[in-house]
Nucleic acid binder design. Structure first.
Lengths: 192, 192
DNA sequence: GTCTATAAACCGATAGAC
DNA sequence: GTCTATCGGTTTATAGAC
């Protein structure tokens, strides 16, 4: 019995559409159609309209993806295998969705970085949280704090670059390639 | 005497606006205002309208950025210093523009990857061309062809991830950090 | 909370004179 | 090649009944 509220459907549709098409190209009308909801419902739950909805989409999608990455990292025998599994899993997801689903926030982040400081900050918070989560695990594996953080930043940069490359070229191989590179970087940090 | 034609102004404005705001958020009206041109002029030079203009913007911006990267790589004493100079230069440009100007095509590429196959292919061609240019130089420095290409793909992924991270967090340090990582990866490939 | 109807502005694109 | 004027459609957001 999976009863979904109108609010849940609105947020869910918005998250998917923003992820795949970006902020500007996704219309309120389209979100309402996919959600099978009325216009007034959206403004009831999100008085600020499209902007409020996007802020919630960024926060919740960021948190969900973080939980996924954390579970992958934590179920691997060591951080090397962990980061590699993250990239391999990302590659499989991208392929399975026909190159539609990659990073949940990257397209919106790229669009609004110069034009909407509130949404930009929400995206920055998500990235920071992802970096913290990864850095914490690298430290736990014996990497020094400063190096662990830099490694975590590189992890996210490589993942984002891989997502973009895979989507544009319709080829998940670069993402898997990035995973092996990241694995080597983590290994080098553990040895030193 | 730098006389600019209407066509040049249209393309120039479009390139800047698409780079900073993306495709969907940039209106024809805004492009015309910045270009100080009439609506009919745009459709005279670009019968396909916004779509044609974007295709030209992607191609010309891609070629121009490639020429810049090539000149930086070619004026460095070796590929290690070359890739590092690319990231340091990118970081300086991002900072100098107040975090507005990063990759000329990434925002548009991310937006249209799922929704416009013609523009997606134009972006894919740009990335391929950048990768070829970098791979060629790694080969010339002694890296085996297959490894050189993989190194070049990693170069672009790390650059794109760095651009996004820098813009969203308003901090160019991750981009410089990525440069040192890339330098180490090139050095490791040269030693083997 | 949800319905229907609609306001008010803006969108990309085009017509026709010059 | 460029001007002015404008078309038809869509956009975000709101009003008022229920």
């Amino acid at each position: 019995m999976t009863s979904t509220t109108t609010r849940e459907r609105l947020l869910g549709s918005a998250r998917t559409l923003f992820q795949r098409q970006g902020f500007a190209a996704t219309g309120i009308k389209q979100i309402l159609e996919v959600s099978d909801a009325a216009s007034a419902s959206l403004y009831h739950f999100y008085p600020g309209g499209k902007h409020d909805l996007a802020a919630d989409a960024i926060r919740t999608s960021g948190a969900e993806y973080q939980a996924l990455v954390e579970s992958v990292l934590d179920s691997a025998p060591d951080p090397c295998a962990g980061v590699r599994a993250c990239f391999d899993g990302a590659a499989s997801t991208v392929e399975a969705s026909g190159y539609q689903d990659a990073c949940p926030i990257a397209t919106v982040a790229s669009e609004i970085a110069n034009t909407d400081d509130e949404l930009r900050q929400a995206c920055a918070d998500v990235f920071d949280s992802w970096i913290d989560a990864a850095a914490k695990r690298f430290r736990a594996a014996g990497v020094k704090p400063a190096a662990a953080r830099e490694l975590a930043v590189t992890f996210i940069m490589l993942l984002e670059g891989g997502f973009l490359m895979a989507r544009v070229r319709r080829d998940a191989a670069p993402l898997r390639r990035a995973g092996r590179t990241m694995e080597a970087l983590v290994r080098a940090s553990l040895d030193s």
